[in-house]
Design a protein around this nucleic acid. Structure first.
Lengths: 193, 193
DNA sequence: TAGTTTCGGAACTCTTCGTTTCGAAATATG
DNA sequence: CATATTTCGAAACGAAGAGTTCCGAAACTA
């Protein structure tokens, strides 16, 4: 590679400034100029790294999500509790709270971004769900495991709505209650149709 | 009231054009000029009725949602099936699919709009959930009814995520499966802590 | 040393929101 | 009927912000 190398501190300053503006102003009031100013950086430095404002916010919000699959908790109940906690943690950071719905809306108009979200976030989460279901079957806790996507929606859905639609701040008792209800939902063997 | 009265056909033309542009272009590509052109109307006629683009889209998307509380279905199972179907129907119209996440994002930057959403949509849905839970208790199907907001999130959340995050088109078997799992989740009496 | 890429900063174009103005039409009031 | 008021479509306007381009300087490679 020839030429002046990119300054890594600029990369970090841009992402940090984006998260700062995001939490202080919200996605709808975030401007690229404001990010550049807050980062002490020229706008060109931003567009050299990200092709659009959407890409910038995506990178800043989906950057260090804790996506290591939770370890075997020993029981379906423990695995579900860990999954619920991980999902709630991912969605309730100040950055995620500020950018989540806006990013979701961006995906509608930018299929490439939506695909990246699917690969970067959804597929990994789904794999964690799948692993927990497989372990429960192996333990004999579940005969017929429910569909993975359905299970995923049963975990992520209530958490998403609780935080982004109902805008509840409190998550502790919610996490406990959701986990208990989820276990009951999954253990139930549906009647043959 | 003095002066020339508002033409009611203009009201309808604006809302119809908004829904048309919404489904054809998506929220992110919807411009007020495009709506005005599609409606055969001046932009001033739009801003005479709505104070912002957000208000316009809100009115067009949350207009005729079927918010009559579902009648007593005779059993918790039947009531849940009806609730799930109503929620899925509300969220899966072409207009809702195009505007849903965008509107949700707008609420973050416009608390007044968020309050109207709470009153117009969430409160009514919550009342339907509450009524179904009350009937189940009266029938003796539930001893300790779960928290209404939690139950609401258990119904709306998976539906929302299924349609807007996973972007699944298919809803029939999803509705059936969700209903069955929900009933199991609600019937379960959580252990004393 | 020459060529390339980065840097911050500024100027620029283009799109879109929201406002204002225009003449004409419709209605209520006197 | 006459006047005041509000509507109508259309067009022009100002402000804001996305994205691009250029500048001189700095950092790196060959």
């Amino acid at each position: 590679m020839v030429g002046r190398p990119r300054d890594e501190r600029v990369d970090q300053a841009i992402l940090a400034a984006t998260r700062k503006v995001l939490t202080e102003q919200g996605y709808s009031r975030l401007t690229v100029d404001a990010v550049a100013t807050a980062a002490g950086v020229g706008k060109a430095a931003i567009y050299r790294r990200y092709s659009s404002k959407h890409e910038l916010v995506f990178a800043a919000a989906i950057h260090d999500l804790d996506l290591a699959p939770p370890p075997d908790g020993g029981s379906l109940s423990a695995d579900l509790a860990a999954l619920v906690q991980d999902v709630l943690d991912s969605l309730s950071t100040p950055t995620a709270r500020a950018a989540g719905p806006g990013l979701l809306s961006d995906f509608l108009g930018d299929p490439a971004l939506a695909d990246r979200f699917e690969e970067t976030f959804l597929a990994r989460e789904r794999a964690c769900v799948q692993a927990a279901l497989d372990r429960a079957v192996a333990r004999g806790e579940l005969d017929a495991p429910p569909d993975t996507a359905l299970t995923h929606s049963l975990i992520m859905g209530p958490a998403f709505v609780w935080l982004y639609v109902f805008r509840r701040e409190e998550t502790e008792t919610f996490a406990r209650d959701l986990t208990v209800r989820l276990e009951a939902a999954l253990r139930h063997t549906p009647p043959r149709t």
